[in-house]
């Protein structure tokens, strides 16, 4: 029959692992660079889209107000995605709440998870609707200046892709993330209860 002091001795006499700080530093730099590169690529792609849209808007003499409105909507969508990416990046990499007390940290994590869920569901729906509206408005002018079959094919492909993204790819992604979210919230609630127990 061992008492706690004996258990403590066993703990303190455990074989110490040899920890390599160089390896930790090397991995940290690698993961930091990977994330930074990914973000940079996304920002560049969005900036490029905005630049192409601006160039097209400036160079092509669109005649109808619907086209101007559609380009404005497209640019707003790009800016929204850019903003969402940067906000997500900031919240992941500048999280002061890591220094919070565990109970507060758990609440902040829940908030972050809910924000992610809202972004992937409600905000993505608004984004899809705006993109669809933008396309419809854009194709009004196309309809008047080009052959009808061209308008139908162009609109069909564009709307088809949006529908695939919304009803298949995004639903799949949200289902996966929601499963994770539910597990996370369940876990956090249990932890919260543990910390609040007297």
């Amino acid at each position: 029959m061992k008492d706690f002091d004996v258990i403590k001795n066993i703990w303190q006499e455990q074989q110490e692992p040899e920890l390599s700080q160089e390896e930790i530093l090397r991995r940290m730099k690698r993961s930091r660079n990977r994330l930074a590169n990914r973000l940079l690529l996304e920002v560049l792609l969005m900036s490029l889209s905005i630049a192409i849209l601006s160039y097209a808007w400036y160079m092509i003499p669109f005649r109808m107000w619907t086209t101007h409105l559609s380009l404005l909507i497209f640019m707003a969508c790009c800016l929204f995605v850019l903003f969402a990416q940067l906000t997500a990046y900031r919240s992941i990499h500048h999280r002061d709440e890591m220094l919070s007390k565990p109970q507060e940290y758990i609440l902040q994590l829940k908030k972050f998870q809910n924000e992610r869920y809202q972004l992937n569901t409600q905000k993505y729906l608004v984004y899809t609707l705006l993109l669809g509206l933008g396309l419809l408005l854009f194709f009004v002018e196309i309809f008047f200046v080009s052959a009808i079959w061209l308008t139908i094919i162009g609109l069909g492909i564009s709307v088809g892709w949006i529908l695939i993204c919304y009803f298949w790819l995004m639903k799949k992604y949200v289902r996966k993330e929601q499963g994770y979210l539910n597990e996370m919230i369940h876990h956090l609630e249990r932890l919260s209860q543990q910390f609040n127990e007297e």
Partner: peptide, 16 residues
């Protein structure tokens, strides 16, 4: 990260 040493099945390790 941790350089694992050759397994040592001593009584102490089993206790840990």
């Amino acid at each position: 990260i941790i350089e694992t040493k050759a397994e040592d099945f001593s009584e102490k390790n089993e206790q840990v």
